[in-house]
Amino acid sequence: MHQNTSRKWFWLMLIASGYIVLALVATFKPELLNQTIGPGPATWGLVASVAYLVFIVSIMAIAIFSSRPSAREENR
């Protein structure tokens, strides 16, 4: 597999793994998530906002690095 493609798959798998772990924990052990998010609603807001921002900024950064033009870029 081309190096650039491998790198993209690595990042995708990383993001997908986080999502899958979260979905499984929320499904089978919601109390674990509730304890982690606690102790109170205000703390939850901060945790969620930071997690969301990190998630999105990561995607953006990776997107920028993975969208360099290639020499064989066609323009059909």
């Binding site: 993209k8 798959w9 995708l12 997908a16 969620a48 995607i59 990776i62 993975s66």
Partner: peptide, 18 residues
């Protein structure tokens, strides 16, 4: 409802990377 918000971002990641 957080999954309604997280799921599209994974969908977009799949579109972007793959």
């Amino acid at each position: 409802t957080a999954f309604y918000l997280l799921a599209p971002l994974l969908g977009l990641s799949i579109m972007l990377f793959a």
